[in-house]
Simulated scan of single mutants.
Amino acid sequence: MERNFEKVEEILKKHGYEKKNLIKILLDVQKEYRHIPKEVVNYLSVALDIPPAKIFGVATFYAQFSLKPKGEYTILICDGTACHMEGSMSLIKAIEEEVGVKPGEVTQDLKFSLDKVGCLGACALAPAMVINGEVYGNLTPEKTKEILRKLKEGDDR
């Protein structure tokens, strides 16, 4: 895949082409592309004089990085103890029914991706999910489907 590296250059300039800023650079790359593309890793390797294996090592070590594309709407479902006991697995099933994606997957149109996480820190709202940083709590499968329908229609609430 041929990629224009103008955005990557802007990110590198912002961080002064400093090796010590690799994590910040990768965060900005991920924000821009919704994942860390392999060809961008290779570009960063040359620009920062860091072996690609080291960059991949950092990108795979930290959970917030993804080497696979994420959806425009990134859904995180909590499956910690409180959420699990309150029915988080039924929410995953509802999401699968509504948008056709299982944990670890992204829809073909890159609109939605779903990840199951150990804890969101929203135990009092169990079961809970986060979509693009917004917390939704005390969910039922029906409430979950309604939220997703509104996002599909382009209405953010």
Rank of each mutant, 00 (worst) to 15 (best):
E2R: 14
R3P: 00
V8Q: 15
R34E: 11
R34N: 14
H35E: 09
I36W: 13
P37F: 08
V41Q: 06
V41W: 10
Y43Q: 02
Y43F: 15
L44I: 02
A53I: 04
F56D: 02
F56R: 10
A59Q: 04
A59D: 06
F61G: 03
Y62S: 02
Q64K: 08
F65V: 03
S66A: 08
P69Q: 10
G71C: 11
L76F: 14
I77T: 11
I77V: 15
C78A: 09
D79W: 00
A82G: 03
A82V: 08
C83T: 04
H84I: 00
E86P: 00
M89I: 00
L91W: 04
I92L: 13
K93I: 03
K93P: 00
A94G: 04
I95P: 01
E98Y: 05
E98W: 06
G100P: 03
P103T: 04
E105Q: 15
L110Q: 15
K111W: 04
K111G: 02
F112P: 06
G118T: 02
C123T: 09
C123Y: 13
A124N: 13
A126H: 08
P127F: 12
M129T: 02
I131T: 07
G133I: 01
N138S: 09
L139R: 01
T140H: 04
K143N: 08
K145I: 01
K145M: 11
L151M: 10
L151P: 08
K152C: 05
E153T: 01
D155G: 00
D156K: 14
